[in-house]
């Protein structure tokens, strides 16, 4: 009962039991099973090996597997907890759990800190902030003079760097986000509450894709 895909899942590298993942995340067992449907779709879109490769994340985000982007790289790196170049099912569910509407705000703040700490020094540094600003301007085809960019970066950095030591630490980041809650808006995906409707894993899939 309820084991119709157990044979297939046993063969999937990195597969973890939904009951285990549900116990560690805000998801129910049914939601984890629904996420497995999404995971299968994403992890077979370029290389059908049951693992999400960077190209597959890029394809899902941009509809283009070759389009690279600083932020997509950082998202991939944070999801790839084992740092082995692929996202396994357990990593996918645990990472998406942070984006659940019921996930602790602390977890969302921590995730964004790690996202913006590009060089993983334990601090968000001014150069990293400028690099990210330049990346979003490039991505958006927005043109701002270097003077304007410098002014924006300086102002934001001085607002966040309460200790004035030239770097933003996790404590300062938490304080800054509490004053600017919109900074973690992207960290909540309402879709995750309806994931069983979008991917009804309880309906036996025919595995036949429309093209």
């Amino acid at each position: 009962m309820g084991c119709y895909h157990s044979k297939r899942t046993k063969e999937t590298p990195g597969y973890e039991e939904p009951t285990v993942l549900a116990a560690e995340t805000p998801f129910t067992v049914s939601e984890v099973e629904a996420l497995y449907e999404l995971f299968k779709k994403l992890s077979s879109s370029v290389i059908d090996d049951g693992l999400i490769h960077k190209e597959e994340l890029q394809l899902a985000l941009f509809r283009n597997k070759n389009r690279r982007n600083l932020f997509a790289d950082r998202i991939f790196d944070l999801f790839d907890v084992k740092r082995n170049g692929v996202i396994e099912f357990g990593e996918f569910v645990r990472s998406l759990g942070v984006f659940h509407p019921n996930a602790p705000v602390e977890d969302k703040i921590h995730f964004t800190f790690r996202l913006y700490d590009l060089r993983q020094t334990g601090f968000i540094e001014r150069e990293e902030l400028k690099e990210m600003v330049l990346a979003i301007l490039h991505e958006s085809d927005l043109l701002l003079s270097d003077d304007v960019v410098e002014t924006i970066v300086d102002k934001t950095f001085s607002d966040a760097d309460l200790k004035g030591d030239g770097k933003i630490d996790p404590e300062e980041w938490k304080e800054f986000v509490s004053k600017n809650p919109s900074l973690i808006k992207n960290m909540t995906l309402p879709y995750l509450k309806d994931i069983t409707l979008a991917f009804p894993s309880f309906v036996l899939s025919t595995e036949v894709e429309d093209s």
């Binding site: 997509a72 998406l96 990210m132 979003i136 991505e139 800054f176 992207n186 995906l189 979008a198």
Partner: peptide, 28 residues
């Protein structure tokens, strides 16, 4: 005052990146 009174927060600007909106993962 010569200073710009309402500069956009750099992190808000960064948050506008489409890559940081993972809702694309759920699109059919």
């Amino acid at each position: 005052s010569p200073k710009s009174p309402n500069l956009i927060n750099a992190f808000q600007l960064i948050g506008m990146s489409s890559c940081l909106d993972l809702s694309g993962l759920f699109e059919k």
